[in-house]
Design a protein around this nucleic acid. Structure first.
Length: 303
DNA sequence: AGCTCTTCCTGAAAGC
DNA sequence: TGCTTTCAGGAAGAGC
């Protein structure tokens, strides 16, 4: 699942090989994840790639006119969210493409930027460069840039569970299920704890743990659980360093307690019951943070 | 405000 | 063996 470290790895790869190239054509397979494929087909061909940036989990490919006015009037941003299984890779157009490849951007050097997405939970859209700031303003803060005071202020004013807040892209952008669980473990905080009840040193510990986990994961080029691949089609390695994510039933690397699994804020969550004590969780938690054994099927009241 | 549930989608793996 | 069910999950929207 591409989260901040995976998207950052993809962006760095694209940044090393795309800027300066011109997109000559766009071809689509299925388009149900594209906001306006016709607009993309009309707007993109002929534009030159000037840069590649990451915004949370979004990849922004900056496009400008080949020549003439380089002012914002002519600039556009191609914005891509990889969803669950999206992959952006660059390959020569003569190379075979993978099943579920739905968008091809033909470049002026014989290569193609390809978008592959098995489940099509991703998203693709284009906006004028002039609307970029507004798009960015709708996202939360970057976890690697947010200051300590700002982080504490944002969390201490919220009554939501830590897990829910970490996943809320309008609070922090880029954190997904893997890094939420891993950072809570490192901070020694139970995922169902209510943010406003934490002491300042606990919030500072969470911010530090989040930064550490994300930075280490970027060094390892992200986590490849199943589908994630970088822009060259290569796997990341950080999944080998996960301490709780999908390790339920296995011993904690710190204290040997058995890692547990539960649903918090509607999301699959992994934690160590000893290293991450629950503390006082509000009453509603009985209902909303139910502890369920991980049963692979059955006893599934389908309504 | 915050939570649950549902929807989208496919393939892997468990279940029978 | 082979068909069926379940599950994973990012984000958005409805409803409580």
């Amino acid at each position: 699942m591409p989260e901040l470290p995976e998207v950052e790895t993809v962006v760095r790869g694209l940044r090393s090989s795309l800027p300066g190239r011109r997109i000559d054509e766009v071809r689509f397979g299925k388009t149900d994840f594209v906001d306006d494929p016709v607009l993309i087909s009309e707007r993109i061909p002929g534009l030159k790639i000037s840069g590649v940036e990451r915004l949370g989990k979004f990849i922004c490919i900056e496009l400008g006119a080949e020549s003439v006015s380089e002012n914002s009037e002519a600039g556009h941003c191609l914005i891509i969210h990889l969803g669950m299984t999206g992959q952006l890779t660059v390959a020569h157009s003569s190379e075979p493409f993978k099943l579920h490849t739905h968008v091809f951007f033909g470049l002026d050097d014989g290569r193609e930027l390809r978008y592959t997405d098995i489940r099509r939970f991703g998203r693709m859209l284009t906006i004028p460069a002039s609307q970029f700031a507004e798009f960015k303003s709708r996202l939360g803060k970057e976890p690697l840039e947010i200051g300590a005071e700002e982080f504490c202020a944002d969390f201490s004013s919220r009554r939501a569970r830590l897990k829910a807040l970490l996943l809320d892209q309008s609070v922090l952008c880029g954190v997904g299920n893997i890094y939420a669980d891993e950072s809570l473990f490192r901070a020694g905080l139970h995922p169902a704890r209510i943010a406003e009840k934490l002491k300042k040193d606990q919030l500072l510990a969470l911010r530090a743990a989040l930064r550490d986990v994300l930075e280490e994961a970027i060094v390892s080029r992200g986590s490849s659980i199943s589908d994630y691949r970088d822009s060259e089609g290569k796997r990341g390695n950080f999944q080998l360093k996960h301490r709780v994510y999908r390790r339920d039933g296995k011993p904690c690397v710190v204290c040997k307690s058995i890692i547990r699994w539960m649903i918090v804020a509607g999301r699959s969550t992994h934690f160590c019951p000893t290293c991450q004590p629950a503390g006082r969780i509000r009453k509603a938690s009985k209902k909303t943070a139910k502890l369920k054994p991980r049963v692979k099927s059955k006893n599934k009241k389908s309504k």
